[in-house]
Design a protein around this nucleic acid. Structure first.
Lengths: 323, 323
DNA sequence: CTGTTAGCGCTTTCAA
DNA sequence: TTGAAAGCGCTAACAG
């Protein structure tokens, strides 16, 4: 029909016909079918965001950054939760490819590589979020886990701590291992043996943090500070500290990577490294949309945004420290 | 092609052809195009979730409930943020209708009714979340704001409070006005005049809560307790209390409707009414999907889930209270 | 300036 | 048991 010309106002059309068509559109409440349009153009103006758990405030904020940015350019976003399961991830990727999303934003579940292969095989543009996949050249946007960890550990070392236990996330997730790397670099930086206190690996959950902290606090000599790899772990660690009858700061300091938005805490007291979550979502989306528009850079990009140390009240000098 | 028969294994097909086709599928990495399928069936297996702000932990949890439930039945979900703007809402609804989503979950922006009309005109199934629209018969799922408020106010009254100021959300949002109604009922229940302390209306934000609380605390005689309509408002109120040099509980009690998930707080201390956010998302999705499948109830449903009073440390007897 | 044709990838119907 | 034709709603290209 000539209707198409009116809607996209392309090509020549007489004023009268235009009005008549517009009238009819009003009357019938006509809404164009984007599906048919997409079928022709092979473009859905829909992208997807796959995270491990939208309920994690870090990812929530990332998601908001993604949606805002996508919406600015008239893209819709489908969201998915994998709960760290590579199988779920693969299932979602498959469905999304069938639905012909134009691109994908992905927080890869631990050690998963199947999905990446599949995405590549089908030439579906995608950008990784928060986590790298070692030895694979792809677009990825994340905050500087290594440097953030380095700074927060240096903060503890400068306070005089000698035994700092790391309550890490899963070993096969780079956001966890990069933080461990930063810890090791800080210790090496002051000439200490990185293995003076063990590193406890576990899931990024309060339960995992609780278990790790319990084991860490049972060691002799007891560590004077705990470095939690994210705020869920910190939450569990706090519980373990309380149950062990220890007092925060006086007996043991606790610092963490902040995966929670500041505003959720009425009175924030944890010393943290804060990540630019919204900006991570925004930058990743901009990169993806640039690629979709054909304006992307030639090489795969690795965008690393700075994380910021915020010293608050949960860190202080170690007990019995003179000086 | 015969391919279709293989994929949907419908109709008769010889074993040999089947194998040959499956082989080809493997080799070419063929993925069926759901768009074309949807075009034929007028069914996208995609729904949308429109909230005011996914960053609000209440909505985050709702969203998780929605996605989990949708995913179980192989539906994808597109999410959108309106920031309480009816215009944005209308824009999203329009785009989503073009994209032929099968149904919609909507937290209506304050006073908006255009979108509802549009959805109805186009017969797109939808379920309202968290907020009613007065005088319109539609499916809606929310927690019992009125009863929750009633209970938390009764709790304060039983502690001996006589002047309870309400720091409400926007007057035209039922989740706010229902809470005010519960407040009034509680006061009436004990024979008090509901207008003994004013009700402060404002946005559901920390800033709004701060402003309302400042005005409330400046009144003479000063209220002995504040009832915040959500946790952002409570957050702002806490700041106002601190800045006024007042001490929580000793000088003024503070209770709130809990829009934050418990796990976000390291040591929760606020007395709150807790909403079943996940369940709200789940129930709404089940209802919507039932309707899409043609199994829905005939009448519009109004599903009201109970909210739960949790007494913690931010509420106590009023100052100078004897008895 | 407006209408027709064809095809995007799928499935239902009918024929071979 | 398999293939061909037709149509879902859209638009680019062409014809009138």
């Amino acid at each position: 029909m000539t209707v198409s010309r009116v809607i996209n106002d392309s090509g020549y059309i007489s004023q009268e016909t235009r009005s008549r068509v517009e009238e009819a559109i009003q009357e019938l409440g006509y809404i164009p079918n984007a599906l048919a349009r997409s079928l022709r153009f092979k473009q859905t103006r829909t992208i997807a965001l796959i995270v491990t758990d939208i309920t994690n405030p870090f990812f929530t904020t990332v998601a908001r950054g993604v949606e805002d940015t996508a919406s600015e350019q008239d893209f819709s976003v489908i969201f998915c939760n994998t709960d760290e399961s590579p199988d779920e991830e693969a299932r979602y990727v498959n469905v999304l490819m069938q639905k012909q999303v134009d691109g994908l934003l992905l927080v890869p579940a631990g050690g998963s590589i199947e999905s990446i292969k599949s995405l590549r095989a089908h030439r579906l543009p995608f950008v990784l979020l928060d986590r790298r996949i070692p030895n694979i050249e792809v677009d990825v946007v994340y905050s500087d886990h290594e440097q953030g960890a380095f700074e927060i550990i240096m903060h503890l070392l400068e306070l005089g701590h000698q035994r700092i236990a790391v309550l890490s996330g899963p070993a096969d997730v780079t956001s966890a291992s990069d933080r461990v790397a930063g810890y090791c670099r800080a210790l090496a930086h002051v000439g200490m043996d990185p293995h003076v206190a063990p590193i406890y690996y576990g899931p990024f959950t309060a339960e995992g943090g609780y278990e790790s902290a319990k084991r860490a606090l049972a060691a002799t000599p007891r560590p004077t500070a705990l470095f939690a790899a994210n705020n869920f772990i910190a939450n569990g660690a706090l519980r373990a500290i309380r149950e062990a009858g220890l007092k925060l700061v006086d007996d043991v300091s606790l610092v963490t990577f902040d995966d929670l938005s500041d505003s959720f805490f009425i009175e924030p007291f944890l010393t943290v490294v804060q990540q630019p979550a919204y900006e991570i979502g925004r930058q990743a989306t901009l990169l993806l949309l640039d690629r979709l528009a054909g304006n992307g850079p030639d090489e795969p990009q690795e965008i690393i945004l700075p994380a910021q140390l915020i010293v608050r009240k949960s860190s202080g000098p170690p007990p019995c420290h003179t000086g």
